[in-house]
Every structure is written in C-alpha cells, then in structure tokens.
C-alpha cells in the first residue's frame, strides 16, 4: 500500500486513561489499520496511558465497549514491541503485575511465544522516541 521501499519508524504514544475520552480506542484502531502498511511500528504507554493495559477491566457499569482484550491480539498484527514507562507506572501505584500479559509468536524462532510488553525506564524510552520518523500522539 505504501510507496515501495518506504519503511518508516512509527511510534504510537498513548498518554491518556481509557474510557474518559475516545483517544485510547482510536489509537488501537489506527494501530490495527496501520498493520497493513508494513511499517516499523512500536507502541509506548506513559503517563495515564499505562491504565489502558490494566488487567481486569469491566465496563458493564458504564455501558461502554470493553476494548482491553484487543491489546492481547496485537501480536497477530505483528505488533511485537510495546513499551511501558516504569516511572509512569510507579507514580500511579502500579507495577507490571497489574498489567495484561501481551505476547507474540516469533516466526523466526519456530513461532515461539515471546513477551511483547517491555517495562522501560525514562532514559530508554527517551532514546526510543528520539529514533522515530513519525510519532502519533493519543
């Protein structure tokens, strides 16, 4: 779909909690559609964006669609690099165990299941951000 040979580094930066606004849901939509473009994609969750990945979301009481399980399907869309900022988690009283387990199957390694979610410190996240060609902000 993209111009032949054009592969860019795209990062989706998610900084808002889910449900209060539509941005978290829309970010997922773009990631799913964008998978068809064969770009070098990664996702970053920082600030209140870390709440998008929590385990055990239940939206029955607010009458909205629970889209949290979609994150677990991202591996099927070849989204294999999902970064969560450690400082953002800690500042919100969360740790990795509060988050869903996200994995992908590595086709280069006999389809072994591997974690796609990585907890990274600010310094590492800053480095990753600085390497991007395009940053989508949500």
């Amino acid at each position: 779909m993209s111009e032949e040979g054009t592969i860019k580094k795209l990062m989706y930066v998610n900084r808002k909690a889910p449900y209060g606004t539509i941005y978290a849901l829309e970010s997922l939509e773009v990631v799913l559609i964008g998978a068809a473009f064969d770009q070098d994609v990664c996702l970053a969750f920082l600030d209140d964006g870390v709440f998008q990945l929590t385990e055990g979301q239940n939206t029955d009481g607010i009458g909205m669609k629970n889209f949290s399980k979609t994150y677990t399907a991202l591996g099927d869309y070849e989204v294999t690099r999902i970064y969560v900022e450690r400082e953002s988690l800690e500042a919100r009283g969360l740790s990795e165990t509060d988050l869903q387990e996200l994995t992908y199957e590595d086709e280069d390694d006999d389809w072994a299941e591997k974690p796609s979610l990585h907890i990274v410190g600010s310094d590492e996240l800053a480095q990753l951000m600085a390497e991007q060609d395009v940053v989508f902000s949500f």
Binding site: S2, T6, G34, F37, V135, F136, S137
Partner: peptide
Amino acid sequence: SGLGQLIEAAVQSDRLVTFG
C-alpha cells in the same frame, strides 16, 4: 475516507504535524 489515509499521510509526507 478511512484511517489508512492517515497512515499513508504519515508515510508519504516528510513531516507529520498533529494539532489537538
């Protein structure tokens, strides 16, 4: 049109600038 147009804009443009 669809969201693909956003991705295409990101890939084809030299710069993507977002206002929100």
